[in-house]
Nucleic acid binder design. Structure first.
Length: 693
DNA sequence: ACGGCATGTCATAGT
DNA sequence: AGACTATGACATGCC
């Protein structure tokens, strides 16, 4: 154990995670042990839940692309080990001697997270207690909290002593010891050996599961002797019988008659009943070296979403976790939350009410990132920026042959997400912190929007794409805490402020991310759509690297425009283009207004025409009415005329012929009967008329 | 293929 | 004088 002691003395530590998983009201407590490397070793991978299978996942929080992902993808080839690191393999063996049942997949200077059996935990605590004493003498200042649950399982793990019949049986089932896979204990395992070891671990996975089941079966008995006997019996059983045992045990679990449960059972439940939730995980007993976690010896309550950890490529099915004292307890008050699995990390702390920043009132946090963020928020992982996890997730996805940005966006669009990186600025489920940056993505990209531009491509447009962020906004995106660094592809995609010189030029040279496989089609389609959606001036501006958006150029006041031109160093060509863009843009708007105005005028004229036509019809009707009235009046006058003549008599008493005479009105109102042939002689007529009256 | 329509652009006159 | 606006004319793309 000297290497492990050295590890401890050098400032390394052991993080004891007491996990309380709750699954649809059932809870299970389990212990996880995280080997924390000394500060001098903080440049390599953290192997989380490193299981015997080939799907162990590593965390590399300190590299530029650190984050969650498969260990093999993250493992920087050819890196140099820290000279302070213990010889590779030695520490492995010692870790294994502690009863850690899993094979570290990366070098021993990686961070190792293991689930250990209770007996192992006990021994680990004993060892680390001694190590802590040594480290305290050396100034490391680490403390070890044994943890009740670890103590409960004391001596139950036959692996702890690496002896006994079950140990031999397990050796038969898993004949290849992890450390034996390391060809050179003191040297660096080659990549080839690493792959071989992974394969072998995958093969050994089933036997490891059986071992776990055996261990859980043994835990049902209170007697250590009975445990050993049972385990021996179970170990001698054939596989089908062991499976039968597991099934019956599962049935008892489901019936609530048995409180023991293995994580294997738990994960089977999870896989078969996705609605079930891992409700909570308690983080407790976190002895940390002082250099790592000053003030963290009294750990706090953490709340993380464990199901998200599963969904984020942390294959817990394959990472067999041993939990000697795992018990499921029904929690009827939590049934409503079963749809939202989460991991709760609590600690037996002196400050139990402490709530970590970033946790919401209900203790829900979305992904495992939050889990890790809570840890980092307490400097638990050396200020590990959890956002790196998201990045490396994307990067690991990007390196997959079947990587599809759509899938990524779908990942971001998961409904229960509490964040929103999305290509479309709407949702993001992978990271809370990423939501901020992604939100900025959208805001920055859509800061300007002409109403005639389609909004469908807003998010995809760069600064020259019609939706330019203001220059002051170009750096508005908050990457400081997002972990989205320059090598993250999507940042480049959605924040294209580079103004590629020629649209036809191969832009791949400026894209650090290569679109793999079928994604090339999506990329080309995206580029086509982007370019096609650009106006001519936008493409021109893009070609000339105009650092302003078209909307800015057109929309800003002339004073600001002139000052902008004077403030920036621009070539004559650029200035000319900018002025042309402004002129054309304004003229475009003017033309639109003019046409709109013209249309309005036309509409008004059409209205006038309609009104005038209506008025004309009205007048026509009135005229007709008047004509009718006139005719009636004429008829009446005619009738009256003849009536008057019928009553008139001449000097001889004969009727006056109206064809020879006419009636004539004088100015004084008198009426004269005038012969028509003599009508010209008015005076005579008046005389005759006067005589008759 | 052709015409109608919408839109962008240019030239030019007016403000 | 320069910037802006209005508008006719033309070109282009889409339906």
């Amino acid at each position: 154990m000297k290497h492990l002691k050295r590890w401890w003395s050098a400032g390394g530590g052991l993080l004891h995670l007491t996990l309380l998983l709750s699954l649809a009201g059932l809870r299970v407590d389990l212990d996880l042990y995280l080997l924390l490397p000394p500060p001098t070793l903080l440049r390599d991978e953290l192997l989380l839940l490193g299981g015997p299978a080939s799907s162990a996942y590593a965390l590399n929080p300190f590299s530029a692309s650190g984050g969650w992902g498969r260990a093999g993808q993250l493992h920087p080839k050819g890196r140099e080990l820290d000279p302070a690191a213990p010889p590779e393999g030695q520490l492995l063996r010692e870790v294994r001697a502690l009863g850690v049942p899993f094979i570290p997949r990366t070098r021993v200077d990686a961070w190792l997270v293991h689930s250990v059996a209770a007996g192992s935990a006990d021994e680990a605590h004993g060892l680390l207690g001694a190590a802590a004493a040594a480290s305290s003498a050396g100034g490391a200042g680490a403390s070890v909290d044994g943890g009740s649950q670890a103590v409960q399982g004391a001596g139950r793990d036959p692996r702890a002593a690496r002896s006994g019949p079950l140990d031999a049986e397990e050796e038969e089932k898993a004949p290849v010891e992890p450390t034996a896979q390391v060809p050179d204990a003191g040297g660096c395992a080659s990549e080839e050996n690493e792959v071989l070891r992974e394969k072998h671990e995958a093969v050994d996975h089933s036997s490891q599961r059986e071992e776990n089941e055996e261990r859980v079966s043994a835990q049902k008995e209170n007697s250590l002797q009975q445990n050993n006997e049972d385990e021996n019996k179970v170990a001698e059983k054939p596989d089908w019988e062991a499976e039968k045992t597991t099934e019956s045990r599962n049935e008892r679990h489901l019936n609530g008659t048995d409180t023991s449960f293995s994580l294997e059972d738990l994960f089977q439940l999870l896989s078969s009943q996705p609605e079930n939730s891992l409700e909570g995980i308690l983080l407790g007993d976190t002895p940390l070296p002082g250099s790592i976690s000053d003030g963290m010896n009294s750990s706090a309550h953490y709340h993380v979403n464990f199901s998200q950890a599963i969904s984020q490529d942390v294959n817990l099915h394959e990472a067999i976790l041993l939990c000697p004292n795992n018990t499921f307890r029904r929690n009827p008050t939590r049934t409503s939350q079963s749809q939202e699995p989460f991991l709760q990390l609590n600690s037996h702390t002196t400050n139990p009410e402490q709530t970590l920043p970033g946790t919401n009132s209900t203790g829900f946090l979305s992904p495992v990132n939050n889990h890790m963020r809570n840890l980092t928020s307490q400097d638990l992982l050396y200020d590990l920026d959890v956002n790196i996890f998201d990045e490396i997730n994307l990067m690991s996805l990007a390196t997959e042959d079947d990587f599809d940005p759509i899938d990524v966006s779908q990942l971001f669009d998961e409904p229960d997400s509490d964040s929103g990186l999305s290509l479309d600025s709407s949702h993001n489920s992978t990271s809370v912190t990423k939501s901020n940056s992604s939100h900025c993505v959208c805001e920055g990209a859509t800061g300007y929007c002409t109403d005639h531009e389609s909004s469908s491509h807003h998010d995809l447009e760069g600064a020259v794409g019609g939706d330019y962020p203001e220059p002051s906004k170009l750096c508005h995106m908050d990457h400081s805490d997002s972990g989205f660094h320059g090598d993250l592809t999507f940042q480049h995609i959605f924040h294209n402020h580079t103004y590629h010189l020629q649209p036809s030029a191969p832009e791949s040279t400026s894209e650090p991310f290569s679109w793999p496989g079928r994604s090339q089609k999506i990329r080309s389609r995206y580029l086509e759509d982007t370019d096609r959606n650009l106006s001519r001036d936008e493409r021109r501006a893009k070609a000339l690297h105009i650092p302003f958006s078209v909307d800015e150029i057109v929309g800003m006041p002339v004073d600001s425009f002139n000052s902008m031109l004077s403030r920036y160093y621009l070539t004559d060509l650029q200035v000319s283009l900018i002025r042309d863009i402004r002129r054309r843009g304004k003229n475009k708007v003017a033309a639109q207004n003019c046409r709109k105005r013209k249309l309005d005028i036309i509409l008004n004229l059409e209205n006038d025409v309609c009104n005038l036509q209506a008025k004309k019809e009205t007048l026509k009707r009135e005229r007709t009415q008047c004509n009718k009235a006139i005719n009636i009046m004429k008829q009446k006058l005619h009738d009256l005329y003849h009536d008057v003549f019928s009553r008139l008599r001449d000097d001889e008493g004969r009727p006056v012929n109206p064809n020879h005479y006419a009636l004539q009105c004088t100015h004084d109102g008198s009426v004269l009967l005038v012969p028509k042939e003599l009508g010209a002689s008015g005076h005579k007529k008046e005389t005759q008329k006067g005589k008759r009256k």
